[in-house]
Amino acid sequence: MLLELADVSKSYPTGEGILHVLRGVSLALDAGESLALTGESGSGKSTLLHLAGGLDRPDQGAIRFGGQDIARLGDRELASFRRVSVGLVFQQFNLIPSLDVGHNLAFQARLGGRHDADWTDRLAERLGLVKLLERYPEQLSGGQQQRVAIGRALAGRPQLILADEPTGNLDEATGDAVLDLMLALLAETGAALLMVTHSTRLAARLGRRLHLTAGRLT
């Protein structure tokens, strides 16, 4: 078992009281497996993804990665976990605007001390980014930016890729092409994928699918 969420709950204080985003969610993901998480807006998909990636901590429950409960890790250990074990792909791409494509691609891998120049070159080639390496994010199209984000997530060969609506900002054709590329590369690296999406069409392309409604898995 690569990732296991056991009875995880999360709530946020709001102006109108406490908002319970996740209520006792449990799920498991094996190495190399791909899982789509669907649900309405506000159902808690992104929150679940953030908890799985060590970006936030649950109020209750355990999140085990490779058997270790990351919910109990301190800030420094969580940062290390994110550097080494997780690759993140966001709908808004969230590239680092001050770095060019080449440096963005290698950024997380170098942070985690897992930089492999040959692999990064191959990724750039597979993602069609070779001619764009010296460009800055603001000079790229949405599809190009998302390809850089996928490359960045995979460059350190993490065991888990977390993707939050990775094609949400792209048109259908570009989105399909980007997803094809991501799945092919995942197959190559053996990383597991947990992807949040609104689209049942895209969800159907992954190995498994779970649906969230009002903070509970259905």
């Binding site: 990636g53 970006l55 800030d75 420094r76 940062a79 290390s80 976990f81 994110r82 550097r83 080494v84 993140l88 969230n94 590239l95 680092i96 950024f107 997380q108 942070l111 985690g112 960045r152």
Partner: peptide, 10 residues
């Protein structure tokens, strides 16, 4: 936030 998400502590 992206740098933080990729593992640079706050």
């Amino acid at each position: 936030a992206p740098a933080w998400a990729m593992g640079l502590a706050l």
